[in-house]
């Protein structure tokens, strides 16, 4: 029961984060949405470890990987944001469409 509750919280975080990542205009706010999604993944990993397989370290490793993903995402996101702003004074996703397929 508690497992389902915690996983539902994680699902809510992922849903809110997805909304933010899709809807925000500012590149840095898109990154906030992505961080919220990873936040939900961390919570789900911790709950899976406690309620399902506490004898195996795999779920803990998943949380560690999520933390690292968050750090890498922030470093690379701000690096790319600053680079594109320095080159063309762009800080909105609508203006950064060079890579559109």
């Amino acid at each position: 029961m508690t497992l389902q509750l915690i996983l539902s919280v994680a699902a809510a975080l992922i849903g809110v984060g997805l909304f933010g990542a899709l809807s925000q205009q500012s590149i840095v706010m898109v990154m906030m949405g992505l961080e919220l999604i990873v936040n939900g993944v961390m919570l789900a990993g911790g709950a899976a470890w406690y309620f399902l397989t506490p004898e195996l370290p795999d779920a803990q490793m998943l949380v560690v990987v999520a933390l690292v993903v968050m750090a890498v995402e922030m470093a690379m996101g701000f690096g790319a944001t600053l680079a594109i702003y320095r080159a063309r004074q762009v800080d909105m996703v609508d203006d950064a469409t060079e890579l559109r397929g």
Binding site: L18, L22, S23, Q24, S26
Partner: peptide, 15 residues
Amino acid sequence: MVHNARTSAVAGVVV
């Protein structure tokens, strides 16, 4: 601060 808010909200709620 948002664009395409309705589709994004639908995507978030569906997920």
